[in-house]
């Protein structure tokens, strides 16, 4: 397989982030870590948006991935980071394959509301489950990677490196998928579904496949977040969380797989500094950022880079 420039840049980004990890201040490693987890979820959002579909319920898979990871630790006593991510992939893959059969038939507001409804069902279930801590959730601690114990002092770096690897692999995979025949259907579906059907491709099948891929990406992001934060609770599937993913996806734009990763970092940085410098009005800072992006950069932050090239 011949690497195009973007694929090469993704791998280069991954390598740079891995090497830079030990040299960066620890707060920055934490911020990058959170952004990579978010970024992985938003990669999936971007894929759906390329189909012209917005999910207001991706918290469902973010949360399922996190709880799959958490329960592996809590119930099966297998606190292994790779196994946790694996469990998240399996659980979100199966659930989204089933729900996707229904959801793939809907578009626009109906898709958004239906996906929101499913995520709120999970929220309701978790809140009623006192054995899992209800709204308080429970703590998750990952102690090994592929069976090898990690020393406590290198734990943070390990979690970060794992997030870098998974985000890089996800972005790499998604980029090659988007460039493939199947992936390119997304844009066509957004433009005109009828034509896609006439060309002999199944819209239903393509949307279903994209939905499952985006759900699995959200699940990976959730599991990574669970390991990174060390605590999970039903808030991960509450509607503001899903809304935040849409927010970051719109902020980022859908131009390239770099957009969600970069957008998530910008979002995290703005949020974190807003917490610090305007603790009473941090929500407003985020809102104004969103407004400015929508007015001046309707294609998201990524359009900053594409415009330059055209000009």
């Amino acid at each position: 397989m011949k690497l195009d420039r973007t694929s090469f840049a993704i791998l280069a980004m991954g390598a740079i982030l891995l090497i830079a990890g030990p040299a960066l201040p620890s707060w920055m490693v934490s911020m990058l870590n959170v952004s990579l987890c978010y970024g992985t979820v938003v990669l999936g959002m971007m894929l759906l948006m390329r189909n012209g579909i917005v999910s207001f319920g991706h918290g469902l898979y973010f949360c399922l991935g996190a709880y799959a990871a958490g329960l592996l630790d809590q119930m099966l006593k297998m606190p292994d980071m790779l196994l946790m991510v694996g469990a998240a992939v399996v659980v979100t893959g199966v659930v989204s394959a089933i729900l996707g059969l229904l959801l793939a038939k809907y578009r626009d507001i109906f898709f958004a509301m239906l996906s929101l409804a499913f995520s709120m069902i999970l929220y309701g279930l978790l809140v009623k489950t006192a054995s899992l801590g209800s709204t308080d959730g429970f703590n998750v601690a990952a102690k090994t990677v592929a069976g090898f114990a990690v020393a406590p002092e290198s734990q943070r770096l390990m979690v970060y490196s794992l997030a870098v690897v998974f985000a890089t692999v996800s972005a790499f995979f998604l980029h090659s998928y988007l460039a493939s025949h199947q992936g390119r259907l997304a844009g066509a579906i957004k433009d005109n579904e009828l034509r896609v059907e006439y060309m002999g491709a199944s819209v239903m099948r393509a949307v279903h496949r994209n939905y499952v891929i985006s759900a699995v990406l959200a699940g990976i992001g959730g599991a990574l977040m669970a390991v990174n934060i060390g605590h999970i609770d039903p808030e991960m599937t509450y509607w503001p969380q899903s809304g935040e993913f849409v927010f970051v996806a719109i902020l980022s734009g859908t131009g390239s797989v770099f957009a969600p990763l970069g957008g998530a970092l910008v979002f995290e940085a703005i949020r974190s500094f807003a917490y610090e410098y305007s603790p009473n009005t941090w929500q407003m800072v985020l809102g104004i950022t969103m407004l400015l992006v929508m007015i001046f950069l309707p294609g998201g932050l990524w359009s900053l880079f594409t415009r330059k090239r055209e000009g």
Binding site: P25, S26, W27, S30, M31, V34, G137, M225, I229, G230, H231, D233, E235, M236, Y238, Q241, E268, R271, S272, Y275, E276, P279, N280, W282
Partner: peptide
């Protein structure tokens, strides 16, 4: 240094790290 607790446990853990490591 006062910061907001709103936003859920995920954000609070990030902000706790910020308080300790950056501030």
């Amino acid at each position: 240094v006062v910061i907001d607790e709103a936003g859920g446990a995920t954000k609070q853990v990030s902000e706790y790290r910020t308080l300790v490591q950056r501030q």
